[in-house]
Structures are given as structure tokens and as C-alpha cells.
Amino acid sequence: EDYYQILGVPRNASQKEIKKAYYQLAKKYHPDTNKDDPKAKEKFSQLAEAYEVLSDEVKRKQYDA
């Protein structure tokens, strides 16, 4: 799945936009606030993985290549 789609940001998003999108979605899908939703944990880990790659310039360049 596309990391940009997961975070809901365009491919040319700035680091600030990526961070903002991640924090909004992380708050929304955090397992502690969605105890009754088994998919929230999965969504949250996808968000974390996408953010880890896109927030790191080197990893992001490799991902975009």
C-alpha cells in the first residue's frame, strides 16, 4: 500500500504536512482510544510505518525511487 495514501498527503508533501497528518491520524486510530475496533491497531501500525519512512529524508528518497 502507498505510504502517501495511508497518511493522506500528496507525494510532494512537506515534512511539516507529513508530521501533521501523522499526528492527526495517530490520535484518531490509537489503540487506546479504539479498544473495541480490532482494525485500529493494524491501521495505527501502518501509519507508524508510513511515517517512519516518509519522515526520514533518506528513507523517503529510497521509497520514492
Rank of each mutant, 00 (worst) to 15 (best):
E57C: 07
K41W: 15
K16I: 15
E49S: 09
K35A: 15
L25P: 01
F44I: 05
R11D: 04
P10K: 12
K35E: 08
N34D: 05
P38W: 06
A48N: 14
K19C: 09
Q15T: 14
V53T: 15
E42G: 04
V53I: 10
K41F: 15
S55E: 04
K39A: 15
Y4K: 00
S14E: 06
Y29F: 12
K16E: 15
Y22M: 04
K20I: 14
L47M: 08
V53N: 03
N34Y: 05
K41I: 12
N12I: 07
I18K: 00
P38V: 09
A50T: 02
Y63C: 02
A13Y: 01
V58Q: 13
K28Y: 09
L7R: 00
Y22L: 02
Y29L: 13
L54Y: 00
K20R: 07
R60H: 02
Q15L: 15
A65Q: 11
D2K: 04
Y23H: 13
A65S: 12
K19Y: 09
E42P: 04
R11A: 07
E1C: 10
D2G: 07
E1R: 15
A50M: 03
E52V: 06
A13P: 01
A48D: 05
Y22N: 01
S55A: 09
A21T: 05
A21S: 08
K43V: 10
F44N: 03
Q24C: 09
S14L: 13
P10H: 15
H30G: 07
Q46E: 08
A48P: 02
S45P: 03
Q24S: 12
D37W: 03
K59T: 06
K16F: 12
H30W: 07
H30Q: 07
D36I: 04
P38C: 06
N12L: 10
E52M: 09
Y4S: 00
Y3L: 12
D32V: 10
Y23D: 13
E52R: 06
N34A: 11
Q46R: 13
K61H: 12
K59F: 04
G8V: 03
L47E: 02
D32A: 09
Y22T: 01
T33I: 12
A65N: 08
L54K: 00
A48L: 14
K19W: 13
Y3W: 05
E17Y: 06
Y22Q: 01
L25A: 12
D36V: 04
Q15I: 13
E42W: 11
Y29T: 04
K27V: 12
E57K: 07
T33C: 10
Y29D: 03
V53H: 05
Y23P: 02
K41Y: 15
Y3E: 00
A48F: 14
I6N: 03
Y23L: 14
E1Y: 14
L25T: 04
V58D: 12
K28V: 10
E1W: 15
E57H: 07
A13R: 00
L47D: 00
I18E: 00
E49Y: 08
L7H: 01
K59R: 12
K39F: 13
D64F: 02
E1T: 13
Y51A: 03
E1H: 15
Y29G: 03
V53F: 04
P31S: 14
K59H: 04
R11P: 05
G8S: 06
P10L: 11
L25W: 05
A40M: 11
I6D: 02
Y23W: 09
P38A: 07
F44A: 06
D36T: 07
R11G: 05
K19V: 15
F44E: 04
A48S: 13
D32K: 05
I6S: 04
A65M: 14
Q24K: 12
E49G: 08
Q5T: 14
K61Q: 13
K16R: 12
Y3R: 02
D36L: 07
Y51G: 03
D56C: 04
N12T: 13
S45T: 15
A26Y: 15
A40G: 05
Y63N: 02
N34M: 14
Q62L: 14
Q46M: 10
D37N: 08
Y63T: 02
L47A: 07
A48K: 12
S55P: 00
T33N: 12
Q5F: 12
Q62D: 12
Y29Q: 04
E1M: 14
E1L: 13
L25C: 05
K43L: 12
T33P: 06
Y63L: 02
P10N: 10
E42K: 07
V58R: 13
E1S: 11
I6V: 12
D64A: 02
K27G: 09
A65D: 11
Y22V: 02
Q5G: 12
Q46H: 09
A40W: 11
A13C: 07
N34E: 07
I18D: 00
E17A: 11
E52I: 07
L54P: 00
P38Q: 09
A40F: 08
E42Q: 08
P38H: 07
R11L: 06
Y51T: 01
E42N: 06
A50R: 00
T33E: 14
D64S: 02
R60L: 01
Q46W: 08
Y3S: 01
K35L: 12
N34H: 11
L7I: 07
K28Q: 12
A21V: 05
F44Q: 04
P10Y: 07
Q62A: 14
V9R: 01
S55G: 14
A21R: 07
Y23E: 15
K39S: 13
N12S: 11
K61V: 08
A65K: 15
L54S: 00
K19D: 14
A40N: 09
L7M: 11
Q5W: 13
F44D: 02
D36S: 08
D56A: 02
P31C: 08
Q24L: 15
A50N: 00
Q5C: 07
F44R: 06
Y63A: 02
K43Y: 11
K35N: 12
T33Q: 13
Y51I: 04
K59P: 02
L47T: 05
D37L: 03
G8C: 09
L47K: 01
L54D: 00
K61N: 13
R60A: 01
K59D: 03
A26S: 12
P31F: 06
D37K: 03
A26W: 13
Y3Q: 01
V9M: 04
Q46C: 06
P38K: 07
Y51C: 03
K41S: 13
K35G: 10
A26K: 08
N34W: 15
E49D: 11
H30A: 11
N34R: 02
K27Q: 11
E49N: 10
L25Q: 09
K16A: 15
G8F: 05
S45W: 15
L47I: 13
E42R: 05
Y29K: 04
R60I: 01
F44G: 04
V9S: 01
H30N: 13
V58Y: 11
L47S: 03
L25V: 04
E42S: 05
Q5A: 13
V58P: 04
V58E: 15
G8M: 08
Q15E: 14
Q24M: 13
A50I: 08
K61I: 07
P31Q: 10
Y63F: 05
P10M: 07
